[in-house]
């Protein structure tokens, strides 16, 4: 192929691609301009979308904060492994070494029977009664501290308890984890509720945007007919409405983020006081980078999808007028 022809062809492709992006950029900006030309109506639509997105946003941020609390307390949980009566202290050390090799164990410490009795004597105030005993009734024990894990802490602790219980020489493994189970079950239920709510509210956003775009298309019907008469395809006519939906969704996402931030700000004072009462330094966190991005992009995507569904259906019904 001659160099001139190749060069012309590549320039042609270059112009086509540039023109394509230029047209989209123009439509993107002009659709925003159109929305800004009716600020109240635009804000109200965005506010409804924002409210719909803010509800799951608030629940999500609460669940995430509660989960961080549960993880902190789970990290503080120890398992007490009591050896069978008659097991020697050297057996306790051997077993502790074996447990320490587990990947889910952060540290182990042997509490010998005599050390246990000494501690019990100090804490219980029953020294005289204990002196009356001929033998030490306490077994050797091993305190096991689990390693922090990404896995569900309640499941992880359950598994570890069962496995330690099955080790030779172990009589009993105790852990005060009932409250952790209950708390995590509650969080799990909340997470599921959040997912269902998010789906329902996403449908609500689709309906809100779809209806707004339907009304907009109705208002612009004559313009659409003219555009189709001079050769505008459905895709061309649909484009500004899609960008409109995108802006509605993005605006709704921003409002939702503002609402969630206000919610966190409003709660942080009382939560700080509760935390201080328990001697904790817990601080309520707002949505983080990834979650903020998901909220904004999710809003924009829902807006676009609502507009796409509505505009595609609506525009297929509009053709340049004819006698009926």
């Amino acid at each position: 192929m001659p160099r001139d022809t190749r060069s012309r062809r590549s320039r042609g492709w270059g112009n086509a691609i540039t023109g394509y992006f230029e047209r989209h950029a123009q439509t993107l900006v002009s659709s925003l301009g159109r929305l800004l030309s009716m600020p109240l109506a635009t804000f109200l639509t965005m506010a409804v979308i924002g409210a719909a997105l803010a509800i799951p946003g608030c629940i999500y941020v609460l669940v995430q904060n509660a989960r961080s609390v549960s993880v902190a307390y789970t990290d503080a949980l120890d398992l007490s492994v009591y050896l069978k009566a008659g097991a020697s202290e050297s057996q306790a050390h051997a077993l502790s070494h074996q447990i320490g090799l587990r990947t889910d164990v952060a540290s182990v410490r042997v509490v010998s029977a005599s050390e246990g009795l000494k501690q019990f004597r100090e804490w219980s105030g029953m020294g005289v009664a204990l002196d009356a005993l001929k033998d030490n009734p306490l077994p050797h024990a091993i305190i096991v501290k689990p390693r922090a894990s990404q896995a569900d802490p309640s499941v992880m602790l359950d598994v570890m308890q069962r496995e330690l219980m099955a080790m030779p020489g172990v009589d009993q493994v105790s852990m005060d984890a009932a409250w952790v189970h209950r708390f995590l079950a509650l969080l799990d239920a909340l997470s599921r509720t959040l997912r269902i709510l998010a789906i329902l509210l996403a449908v609500a956003v689709l309906v809100v945007v779809g209806n707004t775009i339907r009304l907009d298309i109705d208002v612009r019907r004559p313009e659409i007919e003219v555009t189709k008469l001079v050769g505008g395809s459905d895709a061309f006519v649909r484009r500004p409405f899609l960008y409109g939906g995108l802006w509605y969704g993005l605006g709704g996402g921003l409002i939702a983020y503002a609402v969630v931030s206000a919610f966190i700000l409003g709660l942080s004072g009382p939560i700080d006081r509760v935390a201080a009462a328990y001697g904790s330094h817990f601080v309520l966190h707002n949505l983080q980078g990834g979650a903020v991005l998901t909220l904004l992009l999710g809003g924009a995507l829902l807006g676009w999808l609502g507009a796409y569904l509505s505009a595609t259906w609506q525009l297929a019904q509009i053709e340049p007028s004819s006698e009926k």
Binding site: N15, A16, E22, V230, G231, G232, S233
Partner: peptide, 10 residues
């Protein structure tokens, strides 16, 4: 309008 539809450069 017809030129915008056809994608003619600005």
């Amino acid at each position: 309008l017809p030129l915008i539809i056809s994608g003619v450069a600005r």
